[in-house]
Design a protein around this nucleic acid. Structure first.
Length: 311
DNA sequence: AACCACTGCAACCGCATTTGC
DNA sequence: TGCAAATGCGGTTGCAGTGGT
C-alpha cells in the first residue's frame, strides 16, 4: 500500500506551463507568498495544477533571481569539486551557486559537464598510459600507480563516493567506491567517517592484490566492499553528515588516479584551488577557510560555523 | 524534403525527510 | 510517540529543437 498521491492527477493539468499559468503563479507568489502551503496554493491562485508542480515551476523557473545557462569556468570548477566530494547532492551544490537551481545544475552536469570531465579524464588516462609504457621501454621499470589501476580504469565518469550506489544501480559503470580508492585512502576515510557515524565501524575490504605485471593493471576492478561496510553506508548516504567533508578531504591524500586527485584534475586546475573553493563553502569566515586550506593533511574536525545549508 | 539520431531542458515520479497534530 | 500530510530531493522521462544523412 503506497502513500496517497499529493493530488488527483486526473483532474489537474500536466505538462508544459503556459505563459498565462506562469503569470498567475508569479503574481500570486509575489503578492501573497507561498503561505507555506504549496498544496493549497494552486486553488488560491486559480491554477489547475498540482501543488508540487507549482512549487517546482516557481523554484526552477519563475523565481526572480534565477539564472539559466552561461555557466562560468568558476562555476564548472565548483560543481566538479563538490560533485567529487559529496556526489549528486544537487541541492547542496546549487546552494553554492547563486541563481542556480538543483534541477539546472543537475541537467548541466548530465548533459555537458560530465562529458567534458570524462573527455579530460580519458585524455589524461591516455597520456598516463603513454607515459607509463614509454617509461617501461626506457627503464624496464613499472609505474607505482596511474592509468589503468583499478582506481582509474572506469571508462565512464567515476561515480563519486556519495553517489556510487545510485550510479551502480543505473548501470553506469562497474565501478564501486571500494574499487576506486586505494586501501590507505579507504582506511583514512573510514577513520574520519567512524567519528561522525557510529555505524561506520565495519572492517575495510581487503586491499587489492598486488599487480603481477603491467598488463594486470588493466584487469577488472576488485569487487565492492561487503554490504553494510562503512563505505557502503557512506555511499548510500546513510547517517552521512556534511560536516565531515572538510576533514575528510583534509585527512586523505588522494594521489593521481583517485577521483579526488585524478580524473578531475585538469578541470579543477589543481587540488589547492578546489580545496579553496570547498573551504569557502564550508567556512563563512574567510580567515578560517584560508587556514583550513593552508593546513596540510591531518586536521581537527571542522569548527562550528559551517554553512547552515551544509549542516 | 524527409527521416533519423542526438541534445538539452522542463517536468514528472517516487522515495526520504520533516513537520504538525 | 505515532501517524499523516507536506515538503524536499534525486533520478528519470518526454519532447521540442537541431544537425546530419
Amino acid at each position: 500500500m503506497g502513500r496517497a498521491p499529493c493530488c488527483d492527477k486526473t483532474s489537474v493539468k500536466r505538462g508544459p506551463w503556459s505563459p498565462e499559468e506562469d503569470e498567475l503563479l508569479r503574481s500570486y507568489v509575489q503578492n501573497h507568498g507561498t503561505g507555506g502551503n504549496w498544496i493549497a496554493l494552486p486553488h488560491k491562485a486559480g491554477l489547475n495544477r498540482c501543488g508540487k508542480s507549482c512549487r517546482l515551476r516557481w523554484l526552477n523557473y519563475l523565481r526572480p533571481d534565477i539564472k539559466h545557462g552561461g555557466y562560468t569556468e568558476q562555476e564548472d570548477r565548483i560543481i566538479c569539486s563538490l560533485y567529487n566530494s559529496i556526489g549528486s547532492r544537487w541541492s547542496i551544490i546549487a546552494s553554492k551557486l547563486p541563481g542556480r537551481t538543483d534541477n539546472d545544475v543537475k541537467n548541466y552536469w548530465n548533459t555537458k559537464l560530465k562529458k567534458k570531465a570524462v573527455a579530460m579524464h580519458n585524455q589524461q588516462q591516455q597520456q598516463e598510459y603513454y607515459n607509463h609504457h614509454h617509461h617501461q621501454h626506457a627503464s624496464g621499470g613499472r609505474s607505482r600507480r596511474g592509468a589503468g589501476t583499478p582506481q582509474s580504469q572506469c571508462a565512464s565518469m567515476q561515480p563519486s563516493p556519495a553517489s556510487a550506489s545510485s550510479a551502480a544501480s543505473a548501470g553506469d559503470a562497474a565501478c564501486s567506491f571500494g574499487a576506486m580508492y586505494s586501501p590507505s585512502t579507504l582506511q583514512q576515510a573510514t577513520a574520519v567517517l567512524a567519528r561522525y557515524d557510529g555505524a561506520a565501524t565495519a572492517p575495510l575490504p581487503p586491499p587489492p592484490q598486488q599487480q603481477a605485471s603491467s598488463l594486470a593493471e588493466f584487469s577488472p576492478a576488485p569487487p565492492p566492499p561487503p554490504a553494510g561496510s562503512a563505505i557502503n553506508s557512506w555511499a548510500g548516504g546513510l547517517a552521512l553528515d556534511d560536516m565531515f567533508l572538510p576533514e575528510l578531504l583534509g585527512v586523505c591524500d588522494f594521489p593521481p588516479g583517485d577521483i579526488f586527485g585524478g580524473g578531475f584534475a585538469p578541470l579543477l586546475q589543481d587540488r589547492a584551488s578546489s580545496l579553496q573553493e570547498l573551504a569557502a563553502c564550508y567556512f563563512p569566515n574567510a580567515q578560517a577557510a584560508e587556514m583550513w586550506t593552508a593546513a596540510d593533511h591531518v586536521k581537527p574536525p571542522p569548527p562550528a560555523g559551517l554553512c547552515p545549508s551544509l549542516t
